[in-house]
């Protein structure tokens, strides 16, 4: 065990790696936002829709949930050009992650719809709420509260999943760590720092999400 840690050799790259963390943050954010929006619509169709539309959505969700993300992105990146759809690696990864996340977020949000309490809806109706008022004052606050913890978790998972982009040459955090490693061979230092950046990204996100949930939606629970 003659390895001497030489963080000095990698300090010039700290800022470069922070830039990679920023790209990871973007990818996670994009995948989450689009996945969440698609998931919300698909969850509503899964719960309240019927006929071919519902079957199409269910088929999509089941297919995505049962195939690896990596294969899905390979498909988008390498197979779609065969039918004339050419995407950059960043776009391919972002789209792949968003589509993949949308399936998970569909299933999570279905649970939110299902947990609506029939009784609160009766109460809302009998005190004279309109449909819009019921959604605004009863349905949405309830769904947000129920869904906040699992949605937060999904976001954290997405942050770490962004490292898959390195395979496609996207220079996000993992990709940049890999590049520096190829130049300096200070693997231990570099990948420790990369891991630390991920911890910071997820820890900051967890903490921010916790306080938002706690103060705005009365979500009970811990950061970790």
């Amino acid at each position: 065990m003659a390895y001497t840690l030489q963080f000095g050799q990698v300090t010039p790259y700290l800022w470069y790696m922070a830039g990679g963390a920023w790209i990871a943050l973007q990818l996670a954010g994009i995948a989450f936002l689009f996945g969440w929006a698609i998931g919300l619509v698909f969850a509503a169709v899964s719960e309240y829709g019927r006929g071919p539309l519902r079957w199409a959505v269910r088929g999509y969700v089941i297919f995505i949930l049962n195939t690896p993300l990596l294969v899905q992105i390979f498909f988008i990146y390498f197979a779609l050009p065969d039918v004339g759809i050419l995407l950059g690696s960043y776009e391919a990864v972002a789209i792949g992650m968003a589509l993949n996340a949308s399936a998970y977020l569909t299933e999570i949000q279905r649970a939110g719809f299902r947990s609506l309490r029939r009784q609160e809806l009766d109460a809302a109706e009998t005190i004279g709420f309109s449909r819009v008022q019921t959604i605004r004052y009863v349905v949405l606050p309830h769904i947000v509260k129920v869904l906040f913890p699992p949605l937060s978790n999904q976001y954290i998972i997405l942050t770490m999943t962004t490292s898959i982009a390195a395979i496609f040459g996207v220079e996000e955090l993992t990709g940049r760590a890999y590049n520096i490693n190829a130049e300096t061979f200070r693997s231990l230092e570099i990948f420790s720092i990369a891991a630390l950046y991920y911890v910071v990204l997820t820890f900051v996100a967890s903490t921010v999400l916790y306080w938002i949930g706690h103060y705005f939606f009365r979500v009970q629970g811990k950061v970790f």
Partner: peptide, 20 residues
């Protein structure tokens, strides 16, 4: 609307809005 102005109901399961 008029009927719900004049008649109020309280249920067995309270049915309070949990978020308020």
């Amino acid at each position: 609307r008029a009927v719900r102005d004049r008649i109020a109901i309280v249920f067995q399961q309270y049915n309070l809005f949990q978020n308020m």
